[in-house]
Write a protein that binds this DNA or RNA. Structure first.
Lengths: 219, 219
DNA sequence: AGGCTAATGACAGCGTCTGACAGTTGACCA
DNA sequence: TGGTCAACTGTCAGACGCTGTCATTAGCCT
Protein backbone atom coordinates (compact mmCIF):
# COMPACT_ATOMS: atom_id res chain seq x y z
CA UNK A 1 0.00 0.00 0.00
CA UNK A 2 2.34 2.68 1.26
CA UNK A 3 6.06 2.85 0.97
CA UNK A 4 7.40 4.09 4.28
CA UNK A 5 7.12 1.93 7.35
CA UNK A 6 8.82 3.25 10.45
CA UNK A 7 8.40 2.90 14.19
CA UNK A 8 5.32 5.01 14.16
CA UNK A 9 2.53 2.47 14.28
CA UNK A 10 0.98 1.71 17.68
CA UNK A 11 3.49 -1.09 18.05
CA UNK A 12 1.80 -4.15 19.36
CA UNK A 13 3.50 -7.51 19.27
CA UNK A 14 1.36 -8.54 16.35
CA UNK A 15 2.32 -5.60 14.17
CA UNK A 16 5.93 -6.10 15.08
CA UNK A 17 5.93 -9.70 14.00
CA UNK A 18 4.20 -8.83 10.79
CA UNK A 19 6.76 -6.24 9.87
CA UNK A 20 9.55 -8.58 10.80
CA UNK A 21 8.11 -11.26 8.55
CA UNK A 22 7.55 -8.86 5.71
CA UNK A 23 11.01 -7.38 5.94
CA UNK A 24 12.57 -10.81 6.13
CA UNK A 25 10.61 -11.94 3.10
CA UNK A 26 11.65 -8.85 1.18
CA UNK A 27 15.31 -9.22 2.00
CA UNK A 28 15.30 -12.92 1.24
CA UNK A 29 13.52 -12.33 -2.04
CA UNK A 30 15.88 -9.60 -3.26
CA UNK A 31 18.89 -11.56 -2.13
CA UNK A 32 17.79 -14.66 -4.00
CA UNK A 33 16.68 -12.69 -7.05
CA UNK A 34 20.00 -10.92 -7.40
CA UNK A 35 22.16 -13.97 -6.86
CA UNK A 36 20.22 -16.76 -8.50
CA UNK A 37 18.17 -14.72 -10.97
CA UNK A 38 14.52 -13.70 -10.84
CA UNK A 39 12.96 -16.41 -12.97
CA UNK A 40 15.17 -19.03 -11.38
CA UNK A 41 13.96 -18.17 -7.90
CA UNK A 42 10.73 -19.81 -6.79
CA UNK A 43 8.41 -18.39 -4.20
CA UNK A 44 8.76 -21.62 -2.24
CA UNK A 45 12.46 -21.00 -1.89
CA UNK A 46 11.90 -17.48 -0.59
CA UNK A 47 9.33 -18.71 1.89
CA UNK A 48 11.61 -21.49 3.02
CA UNK A 49 14.44 -19.08 3.86
CA UNK A 50 12.09 -17.18 6.17
CA UNK A 51 10.52 -20.40 7.48
CA UNK A 52 7.09 -19.49 6.31
CA UNK A 53 4.58 -21.14 4.04
CA UNK A 54 4.29 -20.13 0.42
CA UNK A 55 0.76 -18.99 1.14
CA UNK A 56 2.05 -16.50 3.65
CA UNK A 57 4.37 -14.93 1.11
CA UNK A 58 1.37 -14.18 -1.05
CA UNK A 59 -0.39 -12.61 1.89
CA UNK A 60 2.37 -10.00 2.15
CA UNK A 61 3.07 -9.55 -1.54
CA UNK A 62 0.36 -9.75 -4.16
CA UNK A 63 2.87 -11.34 -6.50
CA UNK A 64 6.47 -12.38 -6.77
CA UNK A 65 6.89 -9.28 -8.91
CA UNK A 66 5.61 -6.94 -6.23
CA UNK A 67 8.44 -7.93 -3.94
CA UNK A 68 10.96 -6.89 -6.57
CA UNK A 69 9.46 -3.41 -6.84
CA UNK A 70 8.96 -2.59 -3.17
CA UNK A 71 11.94 -0.25 -2.92
CA UNK A 72 11.25 1.26 -6.31
CA UNK A 73 7.82 2.30 -5.06
CA UNK A 74 9.40 4.18 -2.22
CA UNK A 75 11.73 6.04 -4.56
CA UNK A 76 8.83 7.07 -6.73
CA UNK A 77 6.92 8.44 -3.76
CA UNK A 78 9.93 10.48 -2.76
CA UNK A 79 10.28 11.90 -6.23
CA UNK A 80 6.68 13.03 -6.39
CA UNK A 81 6.95 14.56 -2.94
CA UNK A 82 10.06 16.51 -3.93
CA UNK A 83 8.42 17.63 -7.13
CA UNK A 84 5.49 19.13 -5.25
CA UNK A 85 7.99 21.01 -3.15
CA UNK A 86 9.71 22.75 -6.07
CA UNK A 87 9.13 26.53 -6.22
CA UNK A 88 6.68 27.76 -8.81
CA UNK A 89 9.28 29.94 -10.50
CA UNK A 90 11.07 26.95 -11.96
CA UNK A 91 10.05 25.73 -15.39
CA UNK A 92 8.41 22.29 -15.46
CA UNK A 93 11.59 20.82 -16.79
CA UNK A 94 13.77 22.41 -14.14
CA UNK A 95 11.38 21.29 -11.45
CA UNK A 96 11.44 17.64 -12.56
CA UNK A 97 15.19 17.78 -12.97
CA UNK A 98 15.78 19.17 -9.48
CA UNK A 99 13.23 16.83 -7.93
CA UNK A 100 15.16 13.86 -9.28
CA UNK A 101 18.40 15.09 -7.75
CA UNK A 102 16.80 15.90 -4.40
CA UNK A 103 15.00 12.58 -4.22
CA UNK A 104 18.16 10.60 -4.78
CA UNK A 105 19.91 12.50 -2.03
CA UNK A 106 17.20 12.12 0.59
CA UNK A 107 16.03 8.57 -0.04
CA UNK A 108 19.11 6.66 0.98
CA UNK A 109 18.46 6.36 4.69
CA UNK A 110 14.87 5.33 4.10
CA UNK A 111 16.10 2.51 1.90
CA UNK A 112 18.74 1.43 4.34
CA UNK A 113 16.05 0.97 6.99
CA UNK A 114 14.65 -1.84 4.89
CA UNK A 115 17.54 -3.33 2.97
CA UNK A 116 21.17 -2.45 2.25
CA UNK A 117 21.35 0.19 -0.47
CA UNK A 118 23.83 -1.97 -2.28
CA UNK A 119 21.20 -4.69 -2.50
CA UNK A 120 18.74 -2.21 -3.94
CA UNK A 121 21.20 -1.15 -6.63
CA UNK A 122 21.77 -4.78 -7.56
CA UNK A 123 18.00 -5.20 -7.72
CA UNK A 124 17.68 -2.22 -10.02
CA UNK A 125 20.20 -3.72 -12.41
CA UNK A 126 18.32 -6.99 -12.23
CA UNK A 127 15.08 -5.27 -13.17
CA UNK A 128 16.71 -3.63 -16.16
CA UNK A 129 18.14 -6.90 -17.38
CA UNK A 130 15.20 -9.24 -16.76
CA UNK A 131 12.60 -9.00 -19.55
CA UNK A 132 9.53 -9.63 -17.44
CA UNK A 133 10.70 -7.25 -14.73
CA UNK A 134 11.66 -4.63 -17.27
CA UNK A 135 8.17 -4.80 -18.70
CA UNK A 136 6.64 -4.28 -15.28
CA UNK A 137 9.09 -1.49 -14.60
CA UNK A 138 8.07 0.38 -17.72
CA UNK A 139 4.39 0.05 -16.97
CA UNK A 140 4.96 1.39 -13.49
CA UNK A 141 6.95 4.22 -15.03
CA UNK A 142 4.01 5.27 -17.18
CA UNK A 143 1.73 5.26 -14.17
CA UNK A 144 4.23 7.53 -12.47
CA UNK A 145 4.27 9.72 -15.56
CA UNK A 146 0.56 10.24 -15.24
CA UNK A 147 0.89 11.30 -11.62
CA UNK A 148 3.72 13.66 -12.53
CA UNK A 149 1.79 15.14 -15.42
CA UNK A 150 -1.01 16.00 -13.04
CA UNK A 151 1.39 17.72 -10.67
CA UNK A 152 2.94 19.70 -13.51
CA UNK A 153 -0.46 20.71 -14.81
CA UNK A 154 -1.43 21.91 -11.36
CA UNK A 155 1.78 23.92 -11.03
CA UNK A 156 1.12 25.67 -14.32
CA UNK A 157 -2.60 26.01 -13.81
CA UNK A 158 -3.42 23.92 -16.85
CA UNK A 159 -5.92 21.17 -17.57
CA UNK A 160 -4.24 17.93 -18.68
CA UNK A 161 -7.27 16.93 -20.68
CA UNK A 162 -7.26 19.97 -22.95
CA UNK A 163 -3.62 21.04 -22.90
CA UNK A 164 -1.16 18.43 -24.15
CA UNK A 165 1.94 20.18 -22.88
CA UNK A 166 2.16 18.67 -19.39
CA UNK A 167 2.00 15.14 -20.72
CA UNK A 168 4.33 15.90 -23.60
CA UNK A 169 6.91 17.45 -21.33
CA UNK A 170 6.72 14.58 -18.87
CA UNK A 171 6.91 12.01 -21.64
CA UNK A 172 10.04 13.57 -23.08
CA UNK A 173 11.61 13.92 -19.66
CA UNK A 174 10.94 10.34 -18.64
CA UNK A 175 12.10 9.13 -22.00
CA UNK A 176 15.50 10.56 -21.25
CA UNK A 177 15.41 9.20 -17.72
CA UNK A 178 14.72 5.76 -19.03
CA UNK A 179 17.60 5.90 -21.48
CA UNK A 180 20.05 6.99 -18.82
CA UNK A 181 18.72 4.42 -16.40
CA UNK A 182 19.23 1.69 -18.91
CA UNK A 183 22.71 2.78 -19.90
CA UNK A 184 23.70 3.03 -16.26
CA UNK A 185 22.43 -0.47 -15.66
CA UNK A 186 24.60 -1.79 -18.45
CA UNK A 187 27.74 -0.05 -17.38
CA UNK A 188 29.66 -0.44 -14.20
CA UNK A 189 29.67 3.06 -12.80
CA UNK A 190 28.31 3.79 -9.35
CA UNK A 191 25.46 6.04 -8.35
CA UNK A 192 27.45 9.20 -9.07
CA UNK A 193 27.83 8.04 -12.63
CA UNK A 194 24.09 7.92 -12.97
CA UNK A 195 23.63 11.47 -11.77
CA UNK A 196 26.32 12.69 -14.12
CA UNK A 197 24.91 10.81 -17.08
CA UNK A 198 21.42 12.07 -16.40
CA UNK A 199 22.65 15.65 -16.17
CA UNK A 200 24.39 15.56 -19.51
CA UNK A 201 21.53 13.81 -21.29
CA UNK A 202 18.92 16.17 -19.95
CA UNK A 203 21.00 19.16 -20.99
CA UNK A 204 21.12 17.86 -24.51
CA UNK A 205 17.45 17.18 -24.92
CA UNK A 206 16.28 20.58 -26.14
CA UNK A 207 19.11 21.25 -28.60
CA UNK A 208 18.74 17.69 -29.85
CA UNK A 209 15.11 18.13 -30.72
CA UNK A 210 15.70 21.53 -32.28
CA UNK A 211 16.69 19.64 -35.38
CA UNK A 212 20.06 20.77 -36.66
CA UNK A 213 22.68 18.38 -35.37
CA UNK A 214 26.11 19.95 -35.75
CA UNK A 215 28.66 17.19 -36.02
CA UNK A 216 30.32 18.22 -32.80
CA UNK A 217 31.17 14.66 -31.97
CA UNK A 218 32.17 14.20 -28.37
CA UNK A 219 33.70 10.78 -29.05
CA UNK B 1 9.72 -15.06 -36.95
CA UNK B 2 8.78 -12.79 -39.82
CA UNK B 3 5.75 -10.65 -40.21
CA UNK B 4 4.65 -10.94 -43.79
CA UNK B 5 3.22 -14.22 -44.98
CA UNK B 6 1.91 -14.14 -48.51
CA UNK B 7 1.43 -16.62 -51.33
CA UNK B 8 5.12 -16.75 -51.97
CA UNK B 9 6.15 -19.88 -50.18
CA UNK B 10 6.46 -23.10 -52.22
CA UNK B 11 2.88 -23.87 -51.28
CA UNK B 12 2.58 -27.54 -50.39
CA UNK B 13 -0.40 -28.88 -48.56
CA UNK B 14 1.56 -29.05 -45.35
CA UNK B 15 2.53 -25.37 -45.33
CA UNK B 16 -0.98 -24.43 -46.29
CA UNK B 17 -2.48 -26.26 -43.37
CA UNK B 18 0.03 -24.79 -41.01
CA UNK B 19 -0.77 -21.26 -42.08
CA UNK B 20 -4.45 -21.99 -41.87
CA UNK B 21 -4.07 -23.29 -38.34
CA UNK B 22 -1.92 -20.36 -37.28
CA UNK B 23 -4.27 -17.80 -38.77
CA UNK B 24 -7.25 -19.49 -37.21
CA UNK B 25 -5.55 -19.54 -33.82
CA UNK B 26 -4.64 -15.89 -34.16
CA UNK B 27 -8.14 -14.82 -35.11
CA UNK B 28 -9.74 -16.93 -32.42
CA UNK B 29 -7.32 -15.56 -29.83
CA UNK B 30 -7.88 -11.92 -30.70
CA UNK B 31 -11.60 -12.41 -30.94
CA UNK B 32 -11.77 -14.01 -27.52
CA UNK B 33 -9.36 -11.52 -25.99
CA UNK B 34 -11.35 -8.54 -27.18
CA UNK B 35 -14.74 -9.89 -26.21
CA UNK B 36 -14.08 -11.80 -23.04
CA UNK B 37 -10.93 -10.03 -21.90
CA UNK B 38 -7.31 -11.15 -22.04
CA UNK B 39 -6.87 -12.57 -18.56
CA UNK B 40 -10.27 -14.19 -18.68
CA UNK B 41 -9.42 -16.11 -21.83
CA UNK B 42 -7.59 -19.39 -21.34
CA UNK B 43 -5.35 -20.95 -23.94
CA UNK B 44 -7.49 -24.07 -23.77
CA UNK B 45 -10.48 -22.06 -24.93
CA UNK B 46 -8.58 -20.65 -27.88
CA UNK B 47 -7.37 -24.09 -28.88
CA UNK B 48 -10.84 -25.51 -28.53
CA UNK B 49 -12.32 -22.97 -30.95
CA UNK B 50 -9.82 -24.09 -33.59
CA UNK B 51 -10.21 -27.76 -32.65
CA UNK B 52 -6.60 -28.15 -31.75
CA UNK B 53 -4.79 -29.25 -28.64
CA UNK B 54 -3.41 -26.69 -26.22
CA UNK B 55 0.06 -28.00 -26.97
CA UNK B 56 -0.35 -27.05 -30.61
CA UNK B 57 -1.16 -23.47 -29.72
CA UNK B 58 2.17 -23.21 -27.97
CA UNK B 59 3.91 -24.59 -31.04
CA UNK B 60 2.68 -21.62 -33.06
CA UNK B 61 2.94 -18.96 -30.36
CA UNK B 62 5.65 -18.96 -27.74
CA UNK B 63 3.14 -17.55 -25.30
CA UNK B 64 -0.42 -16.37 -25.00
CA UNK B 65 1.04 -12.89 -25.03
CA UNK B 66 2.79 -13.38 -28.35
CA UNK B 67 -0.53 -13.97 -30.04
CA UNK B 68 -1.77 -10.61 -28.84
CA UNK B 69 1.23 -8.81 -30.36
CA UNK B 70 1.41 -10.53 -33.72
CA UNK B 71 -0.09 -7.64 -35.68
CA UNK B 72 1.80 -5.09 -33.67
CA UNK B 73 5.04 -6.74 -34.75
CA UNK B 74 4.08 -6.28 -38.37
CA UNK B 75 3.35 -2.61 -37.86
CA UNK B 76 6.73 -2.11 -36.23
CA UNK B 77 8.52 -3.77 -39.14
CA UNK B 78 6.74 -1.51 -41.56
CA UNK B 79 7.69 1.55 -39.56
CA UNK B 80 11.38 0.67 -39.54
CA UNK B 81 11.29 -0.10 -43.25
CA UNK B 82 9.70 3.26 -44.01
CA UNK B 83 12.20 5.02 -41.77
CA UNK B 84 15.11 3.57 -43.71
CA UNK B 85 13.50 4.89 -46.86
CA UNK B 86 13.34 8.52 -45.72
CA UNK B 87 15.67 10.87 -47.60
CA UNK B 88 18.79 12.00 -45.79
CA UNK B 89 17.87 15.64 -46.05
CA UNK B 90 15.12 15.28 -43.45
CA UNK B 91 16.00 15.89 -39.83
CA UNK B 92 15.79 12.82 -37.59
CA UNK B 93 12.55 14.08 -36.18
CA UNK B 94 11.00 14.71 -39.56
CA UNK B 95 12.09 11.31 -40.76
CA UNK B 96 10.47 9.49 -37.83
CA UNK B 97 7.38 11.60 -38.14
CA UNK B 98 6.95 10.88 -41.85
CA UNK B 99 7.79 7.22 -41.41
CA UNK B 100 4.93 6.87 -38.96
CA UNK B 101 2.46 8.42 -41.38
CA UNK B 102 3.67 6.33 -44.31
CA UNK B 103 3.60 3.12 -42.32
CA UNK B 104 0.03 3.62 -41.20
CA UNK B 105 -1.05 4.22 -44.78
CA UNK B 106 0.66 1.19 -46.28
CA UNK B 107 0.06 -1.39 -43.59
CA UNK B 108 -3.69 -1.73 -43.80
CA UNK B 109 -3.91 -4.31 -46.54
CA UNK B 110 -1.21 -6.42 -44.95
CA UNK B 111 -3.22 -6.50 -41.76
CA UNK B 112 -6.45 -7.29 -43.51
CA UNK B 113 -4.81 -10.38 -45.02
CA UNK B 114 -4.55 -11.77 -41.52
CA UNK B 115 -7.44 -10.33 -39.52
CA UNK B 116 -10.04 -7.59 -39.98
CA UNK B 117 -8.47 -4.21 -39.29
CA UNK B 118 -11.32 -3.46 -36.95
CA UNK B 119 -10.29 -6.47 -34.86
CA UNK B 120 -6.76 -5.17 -34.73
CA UNK B 121 -7.92 -1.78 -33.51
CA UNK B 122 -9.95 -3.46 -30.81
CA UNK B 123 -6.87 -5.46 -29.88
CA UNK B 124 -4.79 -2.31 -29.64
CA UNK B 125 -7.26 -0.80 -27.24
CA UNK B 126 -7.21 -4.01 -25.25
CA UNK B 127 -3.43 -3.87 -24.99
CA UNK B 128 -3.57 -0.31 -23.72
CA UNK B 129 -6.15 -1.16 -21.11
CA UNK B 130 -4.82 -4.50 -19.84
CA UNK B 131 -2.00 -4.06 -17.32
CA UNK B 132 0.01 -7.14 -18.23
CA UNK B 133 -0.33 -6.46 -21.95
CA UNK B 134 0.52 -2.81 -21.49
CA UNK B 135 3.69 -3.84 -19.70
CA UNK B 136 4.68 -6.11 -22.55
CA UNK B 137 3.78 -3.41 -25.04
CA UNK B 138 6.08 -0.91 -23.38
CA UNK B 139 8.96 -3.34 -23.26
CA UNK B 140 8.52 -4.08 -26.92
CA UNK B 141 8.42 -0.35 -27.57
CA UNK B 142 11.81 0.15 -25.95
CA UNK B 143 13.26 -2.64 -28.05
CA UNK B 144 11.91 -0.86 -31.10
CA UNK B 145 13.42 2.37 -29.82
CA UNK B 146 16.83 0.76 -29.79
CA UNK B 147 16.45 -0.37 -33.40
CA UNK B 148 15.27 3.08 -34.41
CA UNK B 149 18.13 4.79 -32.60
CA UNK B 150 20.56 2.69 -34.60
CA UNK B 151 18.91 3.68 -37.86
CA UNK B 152 18.98 7.36 -36.89
CA UNK B 153 22.59 7.14 -35.87
CA UNK B 154 23.45 5.57 -39.20
CA UNK B 155 21.59 8.28 -41.09
CA UNK B 156 23.52 10.97 -39.29
CA UNK B 157 26.81 9.17 -39.31
CA UNK B 158 27.02 9.02 -35.53
CA UNK B 159 27.99 6.38 -33.01
CA UNK B 160 25.19 5.60 -30.56
CA UNK B 161 27.65 4.60 -27.88
CA UNK B 162 29.45 7.92 -27.73
CA UNK B 163 26.81 10.37 -28.94
CA UNK B 164 23.63 10.48 -26.85
CA UNK B 165 21.57 12.43 -29.35
CA UNK B 166 20.12 9.56 -31.38
CA UNK B 167 18.78 7.83 -28.29
CA UNK B 168 17.60 11.06 -26.74
CA UNK B 169 15.74 12.08 -29.88
CA UNK B 170 14.13 8.67 -30.24
CA UNK B 171 13.20 8.58 -26.58
CA UNK B 172 11.47 11.94 -26.77
CA UNK B 173 9.73 11.01 -30.00
CA UNK B 174 8.44 7.70 -28.70
CA UNK B 175 7.40 9.33 -25.48
CA UNK B 176 5.02 11.49 -27.43
CA UNK B 177 3.87 8.55 -29.52
CA UNK B 178 3.05 6.64 -26.40
CA UNK B 179 1.02 9.48 -24.95
CA UNK B 180 -1.02 9.90 -28.11
CA UNK B 181 -1.50 6.16 -28.42
CA UNK B 182 -2.82 5.99 -24.91
CA UNK B 183 -5.13 8.94 -25.24
CA UNK B 184 -6.48 7.57 -28.50
CA UNK B 185 -7.14 4.25 -26.83
CA UNK B 186 -9.18 5.94 -24.14
CA UNK B 187 -11.25 8.04 -26.46
CA UNK B 188 -13.64 6.92 -29.11
CA UNK B 189 -12.23 8.50 -32.23
CA UNK B 190 -11.27 6.40 -35.23
CA UNK B 191 -7.90 5.99 -36.87
CA UNK B 192 -8.00 9.47 -38.39
CA UNK B 193 -8.29 10.87 -34.91
CA UNK B 194 -5.05 9.19 -33.97
CA UNK B 195 -3.17 10.69 -36.91
CA UNK B 196 -4.52 14.13 -36.11
CA UNK B 197 -3.70 13.85 -32.43
CA UNK B 198 -0.19 12.64 -33.15
CA UNK B 199 0.41 15.53 -35.55
CA UNK B 200 -0.57 18.14 -33.06
CA UNK B 201 1.35 16.60 -30.17
CA UNK B 202 4.52 16.19 -32.18
CA UNK B 203 4.32 19.78 -33.34
CA UNK B 204 4.17 20.93 -29.77
CA UNK B 205 7.08 18.95 -28.47
CA UNK B 206 9.90 21.37 -29.20
CA UNK B 207 8.16 24.56 -28.03
CA UNK B 208 7.00 22.68 -24.96
CA UNK B 209 10.49 21.72 -23.92
CA UNK B 210 11.85 25.17 -24.65
CA UNK B 211 10.53 26.10 -21.26
CA UNK B 212 8.36 29.17 -21.44
CA UNK B 213 4.75 28.06 -21.54
CA UNK B 214 2.61 30.96 -22.67
CA UNK B 215 -0.86 30.44 -21.33
CA UNK B 216 -2.33 30.15 -24.81
CA UNK B 217 -4.91 27.68 -23.67
CA UNK B 218 -6.46 25.79 -26.58
CA UNK B 219 -9.34 24.61 -24.44
C1' DA C 1 2.96 -48.43 -52.11
C1' DG C 2 6.15 -47.70 -48.62
C1' DG C 3 9.43 -45.31 -46.03
C1' DC C 4 10.86 -40.73 -44.13
C1' DT C 5 9.91 -36.72 -41.56
C1' DA C 6 7.28 -33.06 -39.85
C1' DA C 7 3.06 -31.96 -37.26
C1' DT C 8 -0.06 -33.22 -33.76
C1' DG C 9 -2.29 -35.14 -29.55
C1' DA C 10 -2.09 -37.06 -25.09
C1' DC C 11 0.03 -37.05 -20.82
C1' DA C 12 2.84 -35.72 -16.99
C1' DG C 13 4.98 -32.17 -14.58
C1' DC C 14 6.65 -27.45 -12.75
C1' DG C 15 5.63 -22.83 -10.98
C1' DT C 16 2.55 -18.86 -9.96
C1' DC C 17 -1.39 -17.69 -7.75
C1' DT C 18 -6.18 -18.25 -5.42
C1' DG C 19 -9.94 -20.07 -2.57
C1' DA C 20 -11.48 -22.74 1.40
C1' DC C 21 -10.96 -24.54 5.83
C1' DA C 22 -8.89 -25.39 10.15
C1' DG C 23 -5.50 -24.48 13.73
C1' DT C 24 -2.77 -21.16 16.39
C1' DT C 25 -1.64 -16.95 18.55
C1' DG C 26 -1.91 -12.30 20.09
C1' DA C 27 -5.36 -8.62 21.77
C1' DC C 28 -8.81 -7.26 24.82
C1' DC C 29 -12.02 -7.54 28.54
C1' DA C 30 -14.38 -9.36 32.60
C1' DT D 1 -6.37 -15.18 35.23
C1' DG D 2 -8.97 -16.93 32.13
C1' DG D 3 -11.82 -16.73 28.19
C1' DT D 4 -13.51 -14.85 23.89
C1' DC D 5 -12.72 -12.80 19.48
C1' DA D 6 -10.18 -11.57 15.58
C1' DA D 7 -6.05 -11.89 13.05
C1' DC D 8 -2.51 -14.58 11.19
C1' DT D 9 -0.94 -18.82 9.42
C1' DG D 10 -0.51 -23.61 7.40
C1' DT D 11 -2.44 -27.13 4.61
C1' DC D 12 -4.83 -28.74 0.90
C1' DA D 13 -6.85 -28.53 -3.58
C1' DG D 14 -7.13 -26.53 -7.91
C1' DA D 15 -6.86 -23.31 -12.09
C1' DC D 16 -3.83 -21.67 -15.51
C1' DG D 17 0.52 -20.83 -18.31
C1' DC D 18 4.00 -23.30 -20.12
C1' DT D 19 7.42 -27.36 -21.22
C1' DG D 20 9.25 -32.05 -22.12
C1' DT D 21 8.29 -36.56 -23.85
C1' DC D 22 6.57 -40.00 -26.66
C1' DA D 23 3.43 -42.33 -29.54
C1' DT D 24 0.48 -41.42 -33.53
C1' DT D 25 -0.95 -39.21 -37.61
C1' DA D 26 -0.47 -37.12 -42.03
C1' DG D 27 2.03 -35.00 -45.92
C1' DC D 28 5.90 -35.84 -48.97
C1' DC D 29 9.12 -38.18 -52.02
C1' DT D 30 10.92 -42.03 -54.66
Amino acid sequence: MDGQRAARHPAGLRELKKQRTRDALLRAALELFTTRGYEETTVDEIAEVVDVSQRTFFRYFASKEEAAFTIQSMVESYFVAELRRRPARETPFEAMHNAVLDAWNSINEAIEALVPVELHLRTYRLIESTPSLLAAHLRRATELEERVALVIAEREGLDVETDPRPRVAVAAFSGVMRVTGRLWGQRETGLDGLLELTESYLDQLVPTLAGDWPRTRGS
